[in-house]
Simulated assay, not measured.
Amino acid sequence: MNITDPCKKTQASITAANNVLKNPEVQTKMDAVLKGKINAPKEWSVAIGQKPDGYEVTPAIEQDSTKGTVPSSQLMNTYIADGHSHAGNPGVPSGGDLYKMIKALEDSPALRYRYVYGNYGGLPEVYAFVIDNPALAKDFVNQFPESENYDPKTHGIKEESPLGKEFYRAENHASEGRFTNSSGENYESRAVGFAYILEKYNAGISIAKTDANGNLKKINANVQQITVPNSGGKVKEGVKISKCP
C-alpha cells in the first residue's frame, strides 16, 4: 500500500498559506485588525485578492454574532483567501466554515485559504483551512453532502451523520483525555476532529494552527491504540496528535 507522508503532501500549500499570512499588507489589514476583534460581540471578516505584485485586502466588515458573509464582492482582483473572527470564542473553524469554503470554489476556483481568529485564554489564536487539492475537496462534499452532515443550528458537524460518527470519534477522545500529543501545542478538540476526518477521507484540505512564532503548522490526528496518559499504563483506542515541522 502506498502511504503518502501527510506533511510532505501538503508542505507546498501550507508554505503558500504562510506566505500570504506573513505578507505586510495582510499583516496590517487582516492579521492585526482581526486580532483586535476577537472579543468583539460580532464576527468581522475580510477577503483577500491576488494582485500581480502582491495582495489586495478588503476593509474588515462587521457580521452577525455567529455567522457572516465574506466581502469577496468588494475585491478588484482574484479572490484567493479570507479571514474572520469568532466573537469571543475559540478560533477553531466550524463545520460551516469548511462547507461554505468548499462551496465557494464553484464561483471562486482560486480560493485556497481561510484564516480564523479566536480567543484562547484571553490571547488571539489563529487556525486555517488550507485547500491543497480542489478536486478532492469537491469529491469530499459529494461523499459527505452538507445537507446530511452539517448542523446549521450548531454550525458544527452533525453528530449522528456518516461524517459526524468519525469526527466525534476523534473529538471525544481528545476532549476526554484519551490522546497523546507530541506537537507542543494546545488544540481545541474540534480541531483534532477536523484533522482526523480531512486526512482519513483524503479531502484535499488541511487544518493548521499558528505556533508561537506565528507560523501555520498542519495538525495531524490518527485514531489508534495508545497508552492512555495517567491511566496506569492502560492501552486502548485514543487519538495520536502531532504537527508538521
Score class of each variant (00 low, 15 high):
Y196D: 01
Y150R: 05
A110Y: 07
H173T: 08
G68L: 03
T69A: 12
T210M: 14
F194Q: 02
S182L: 07
S231R: 11
I207A: 06
P109R: 06
K234P: 07
D151I: 09
V92W: 00
K158M: 13
K240V: 07
N220H: 13
D53T: 15
G156E: 13
V130K: 02
Y196V: 01
P90W: 02
G164L: 04
A137R: 02
D107L: 10
H155T: 14
P245N: 14
I205R: 00
Q74K: 14
G83F: 00
N202R: 14
G54F: 10
Q143T: 10
D97P: 03
G68H: 01
L75Q: 04
A137K: 03
N215I: 14
K153Q: 14
E176K: 14
G68N: 04
V192N: 02
Y187G: 00
N77V: 06
A128V: 08
K35V: 05
W44A: 02
I48L: 12
Y79S: 07
G49W: 10
T180D: 03
V228N: 08
V46W: 00
I131W: 03
P134Y: 08
T227H: 08
V235R: 12
A40I: 01
G121W: 07
S13N: 10
K22E: 11
S94H: 02
A203H: 06
